[in-house]
Nucleic acid binder design. Structure first.
Length: 109
DNA sequence: CTCTTGACTGAGG
DNA sequence: GCCTCAGCCAAGA
């Protein structure tokens, strides 16, 4: 099917669903994979609509491994709990040992 | 069409 | 390593 058939948001959701268990990626990595390397902000913006969808938004963080989007989740530590539940070490909203859990769609997909 | 907002990123001090 | 500034692009009013 034509890629243009899917909206930018929909593409983001598709890639987010492809994130392996216990792994995380950055908005920029997803944006780059979609061909919109400069639209990293749009990726996060798109995640606003991820609520109600099967998109593991908790696996998407900024390039520093910081849980910048945790404020968009319900509780104050829901996002962190989800990550830790998958074996990702998180301290103070920041992912530890990021290089070990980082997943780049344009590299491994 | 114009203006504002934003879960980002890279460069410079 | 930390802080600040500017560029980027799409969606909504």
């Amino acid at each position: 099917m034509k890629p243009e058939t899917l909206n930018f948001f929909d593409k983001v959701y598709e890639v987010a669903k492809l994130i392996p268990y216990g792994r995380v990626t950055s908005y920029g990595a997803i944006a780059k994979y979609l061909g919109a390397a400069r639209s990293a902000r749009m990726v996060g913006y798109a995640m606003n609509g991820s609520g109600g969808k099967d998109v593991p938004a908790h696996r998407v963080v900024n390039r520093k491994g910081l849980l910048t989007g945790k404020h968009h989740f319900e509780g104050t530590n829901l996002m962190q709990q989800l990550l830790e539940s998958e074996g990702v070490e998180v301290v103070e909203n920041q992912i530890q040992n990021l290089e070990s859990v980082y997943w780049d769609p344009s590299e491994e997909l």
